[in-house]
Design a protein around this nucleic acid. Sequence first.
DNA 1: TCAAAAGTGTTCTTTCTACACCCATGC
DNA 2: GCATGGGTGTAGAAAGAACACTTTTGA
Lengths: 229, 229
Amino acid sequence: MLGIRDGRLRVLLWQRALAPDAGRWSLPGGRLAADEDVESSVRRQLAEKVDVREIAHVEQLSVFSDPHRTPGPRTIATAFLGLVPSDADPELPADTAWHEIEALPPTAFDHAGIVESARERLRAKLSYTNLGFALAPAAFTISALREHYVAALGHPVSATNLQRVLTRRDLLEPTGGTVPPGRAGGRPAALFRFTDRTLRVTDAFAVLRPPARGAADRRSGGPTDVVLP
Amino acid sequence: MLGIRDGRLRVLLWQRALAPDAGRWSLPGGRLAADEDVESSVRRQLAEKVDVREIAHVEQLSVFSDPHRTPGPRTIATAFLGLVPSDADPELPADTAWHEIEALPPTAFDHAGIVESARERLRAKLSYTNLGFALAPAAFTISALREHYVAALGHPVSATNLQRVLTRRDLLEPTGGTVPPGRAGGRPAALFRFTDRTLRVTDAFAVLRPPARGAADRRSGGPTDVVLP
DNA sequence: TCAAAAGTGTTCTTTCTACACCCATGC
DNA sequence: GCATGGGTGTAGAAAGAACACTTTTGA
């Protein structure tokens, strides 16, 4: 479960009370029940154990199956990436906390590796999908959104170009609202929202695209053309 | 296990002799042994059961865990995408065969869905990685390579542009050899090979790239600059 | 009126697609 | 010679990065 908290990308971890790996921090999760699939299971575990219900997005990462990944009897984990918007503020049990992903505490088992693969997936998808919706609050200014992207990507992002890219892809729309400037002055910032709050791939074919239904079609046809969806 | 055979994208399937789903075609696979991880298991299963050893690439797709995906006791499958180059010609047992992916025979359980997700993954990765190496033979002409891409992507691909994109990305190199033309004449075709035969991502950041270490660096620095790798 | 923050206009570069053209060979 | 397939040259288009400039506010 990742999210932006206080301008940093953080992961929700839970401190183990008992052996094995007592005292170390662990990803939330648990055993798969007989009548559920892995995704339902993840949502159930999070709801039950850490009371996180405002999950904007969940997707499978990968199976971790090294026979020695945990001590004792062999266990296999299906790891998930979950994202919580920064305006959701779930009540957390005493033994769970948001940890900065750049400075993880000692983690249990292979959980550090899982966190790393989650971060990579998030970074990649921010680039070619609308996944920002799952990190950002319902409404935001461009500069706030920019800070979310900076935190998640780990490199500078220009507010100007961020707005342009997301707008050109029809991912953002203005809410109409504005936010007044602080004491220092400045123009009031417009509020935006994501047009969709489900995952949408915006840039499927980076290259080797199917031939453009453009030039040729337009030439041959004319204004009576019917364009199929 | 996917590969190009006779100019078509095909999947290696195995016909079930016994219930459940007797007579239907099934993806090769089997139970995970106690001392192996899922990837070793896949390679072992393929080597043992269908004698496919020339596998150029294997990667995890996803876990299929619907409690009702198979009859009887609940089973969970970790699905993999494996690719065999078109010049590898493994001996196949009598009950296995390459099936055209566009015209699958009746398949067992949820295997048709798994095949579909494998194809999607393959298409996407052909676009932004060097994954072509895992479909193509060791040396090939551009037009032969083009046919592989057409079969896998399912849409027209221009040989001209394919060569240019792959060359610009330093994925192809000439072997020096050529292939004489057929009876109809024509210029002899040059042979190429992939420079790497392991997966390489060539287009990681489609957008929201980290700032270019270009213009600014060049201006501020000058000829004494040291460029770090 | 000036500083600060937000937002727009414009240019530059890169990278791909489209297409015209040249090359080497068999008949 | 000339048809055929292979390969290159080059213009056009699209998308994003960079940056100058305008807008709107507080003090």
